[in-house]
Nucleic acid binder design. Sequence first.
DNA 1: TTGTGGGCTCCGAGCCGACAA
DNA 2: TTGTCGGCTCGGAGCCCACAA
Lengths: 551, 551
Amino acid sequence: MSPPQPSRVDPKIWRACAGAAVQIPKLHSRVYYFPQGHMEHASPSHYLSPLIRSLPFVPCHVSSLDFLADPFSDEVFAKFLLTPLSQSQQQPFQNDNKEARNDDDDEDRENNGVVSFAKILTPSDANNGGGFSVPRFCADSCFPPLDFRADPPVQLLSVADIHGVEWRFRHIYRGTPRRHLFTTGWSKFVNHKKLVAGDTVVFVKDSDGSVSVGIRRAARFAAAIETPPPAEREGFSRSTTGRVTAEAVAAAAESAARNAPFEVVYYPRTGFADFVVSAEVVEESMKCAWVGGMRVKISMETEDSSRMTWYQGTVSSACASENGPWRMLQVNWDEPEVLQNAKQVSPWQVELVSPPFALHTVFSPNKRLRADQGSGLLSNREQDPFFPMPGFSNSAMGHMTGFPNSTVGQMDKPLLSYESFPAGMQGARHDLYSPLSFSNFLNDNSYLYMGSGSFGNNPVQSLGTVTTELNMSSSQSDDLSPHSQSSFHSFGTEFTGTRNCDTKVGPGSILLFGKIIQPAESDLHDADCMERDGSRGSNKLKTVEACYFSK
Amino acid sequence: MSPPQPSRVDPKIWRACAGAAVQIPKLHSRVYYFPQGHMEHASPSHYLSPLIRSLPFVPCHVSSLDFLADPFSDEVFAKFLLTPLSQSQQQPFQNDNKEARNDDDDEDRENNGVVSFAKILTPSDANNGGGFSVPRFCADSCFPPLDFRADPPVQLLSVADIHGVEWRFRHIYRGTPRRHLFTTGWSKFVNHKKLVAGDTVVFVKDSDGSVSVGIRRAARFAAAIETPPPAEREGFSRSTTGRVTAEAVAAAAESAARNAPFEVVYYPRTGFADFVVSAEVVEESMKCAWVGGMRVKISMETEDSSRMTWYQGTVSSACASENGPWRMLQVNWDEPEVLQNAKQVSPWQVELVSPPFALHTVFSPNKRLRADQGSGLLSNREQDPFFPMPGFSNSAMGHMTGFPNSTVGQMDKPLLSYESFPAGMQGARHDLYSPLSFSNFLNDNSYLYMGSGSFGNNPVQSLGTVTTELNMSSSQSDDLSPHSQSSFHSFGTEFTGTRNCDTKVGPGSILLFGKIIQPAESDLHDADCMERDGSRGSNKLKTVEACYFSK
DNA sequence: TTGTGGGCTCCGAGCCGACAA
DNA sequence: TTGTCGGCTCGGAGCCCACAA
């Protein structure tokens, strides 16, 4: 039946199933491992042993990396073999960039031609004996075109799950008004995979036209369907914890403390931060002098996973206590209800929106850009009140530390309209990150002073803004769904990306979620063209890659 | 759901599920462990490592004994902890008898009041959506009586599986002609337990009237539905091997060689011989001078597990080569087609029918007694052509060894009508059983000479023939199924048992399958009586016990 | 565009007696 | 006595459109 061993998964498919928000460092790249972040995947109580407390971060080399899928739940996960790096092995900053650029080439090749679409199952989708409402865009972009001369148009789709097992779905276009549906075969799939409303299915079309389906389980049922491992896995755990045990984390930390290679398993989960992060990304973010009052934004997947949305907030505290940089930023989000799990974030998760004194700019939370607000599409750059003002962005970094009192007051305080800083910001010390200190790891110059002066030392091409290629699917095209009510469908990664802390922004700088991207004006109708070259597709990943290389 | 750990099972229920042919030595008793026999359960190729070859048998003490059930297949199995015995710990023969007699008391108490019935599932029984044809005798003996005034008589039976999980079956008595059926609930059971035609269900009524159901899986599908242990046991192995691994056998043998305690797991399987055998049983059988030409019989369960049948054959070779006593007898069975797996047997599996010169007696294979040939019931003793002739049986044992040439020729050869002995009988040596030799283990006297002289040394009461109590179920009784076509139903253990090698036959001497029993004439109609004392029942086990104590 | 509800169909699970071995 | 067959029923799986968000 289904394989008892985790399946090895094509990285293209894996990335589509994990979601675009997941950034997996490259094999043989340099990373930071955060034991605390690891523990968050294991223990909801976040209990930190003294050992883990003494290891706020561990510089490592990714010695092996497997993209795997759970044989029971179909969920994807990654297995890293991390080798702690001694100081002598730590590469200079520039080398990283070179590596990263190569990796980008790799990644582009990996994702070339892959189109994916994720849908959260509705109760109707998950009903026993029911069918599946295929979103029009999913059908148009991921499935072979129907013959709309037939009445009704219908085809038998063969779709491979993450293990390569084929499932057959009857894909029909019917009803009034017409819509795409899966009928025969769908219920069998739902039952066999034990899908419930709230779970997500991800359809992936590879460059050869073959279609795969992945699954992301909803985390809502936590400890409900718990089963004792390892035997008898008729059911599987829906818990967000449990796959990663506190013991495994302790073992990893213990090895890390001995500078011995260790294995970590990472299950992508919305709401959980990556705990193995590209060294460049971390170091980049740590060059910034994080202080309270800064306006930051964080990118999140939209509910349907097809786009990214920015949410904004204000840093209330940049106090790291003894935890190192992990979740050192406390942020009051403008919409706290949608960011329950992100009250404390790590610097590399967010981007600075504007220097503190830019808070004077008129800001209405209601005007926060959402990609699904189509009106913002054509002129995001002009409409974005947080678009960087070049002179400010550099001067904001001319300060020494992210720690309060001694530095915050001098320039920022007078400019801030906030009356008070949280008490937690008081009393942080400069020797916080021992024994493994970021200031040891980076050269002091780049760590402490990243003003405009550092820009000239950076050999990497400056690329302040990257233009996103926007693909529009035309409903008038015969090979797509006819009778579309709206002529345009926007998709891809749409947001305003700015990098205020550092002017060094280039192809190698995958920051946050790798999207330092700004949509430009575009209304091309190139469905025919896409059809010809076989990519057709316009999924988010492809869009991102095309962006880098069309530049 | 179902427990992932093996369930501990009531020994009464366990024995009923394992079948009466299975003899499990008692806790704290002395046994022989046969690594070769163990290996037969693991590897069909019967490959024997040099270590195992060097250990033809290991005298052990049963230090712990668990009666367990597989959580997935419901099959019962036993787990022994065996402690190898040094020579100084080996008990004299007489003590064993005393222990054995006590054990018999225990066993009788354990099985008191337990009634069981086994049925091999027909295709109709195992059909999805179908019901279960309850044999009349099963309904009458194992289930609470129906109210036959109702039309139709019907009840809801609550039946516990081997793990204690309750299953509910609608038990109805209907159809023309009337018969007992399970309808509602049966199909669910079949599907959940993945029963197929050929599997056996065993219904067990305990003394308190509660009903249990056990399962014996057919072995026919061997390597078909193989699943890789230990994870993902939606299916389970129907292989006869696989539960016991060659590695486990090697580990046991390795411990045994070091005189260290070791664990063995035993799955009862028809066609596979027990490899942990009561020391007394083994030693008893080894006192005989086994030679080719001897007529032997072996007891087998009838297909429906409700009775035992004797099959006869002629020893063609008694050469043990270097394997010790394990399967040292090569037997040409009169009906080889029904005894495929028993061409080579161990001495304790068979009983001598007559001394070699008794072959002159007129013998027709067609007259072999079968318990289901009712005509043999009333006068087995007189009709049995192989009934022992006391004078002969003792004199047959006045010979020194079971090994050929030097001894065989003297008395036996002239009396045998067989022209030739297999070549394998040549060349066996007396020092065969080193380092652990039976002749070391037993005192030389009892081993080499077991003529009539040894009888007087035996303190145990002589009991040459034991009478079986025969229970007859009367169909006229109102509380049983009405309208029975035949007035009598015979059941219980019906055969002729003789012990020719040794006159010492007593309550403690459970030989072969523990049935040294001879049916006597009986036609009692005691259904009412049985009903009153609550035992009602007359299952095979109870019959055997009653036999011992009615004497 | 797509989620949900209700109606309808159809298949198979499940119960039955007839019949025969 | 009991295994199997075919008929029948009934419930639910599964497909459809209407309607509404």
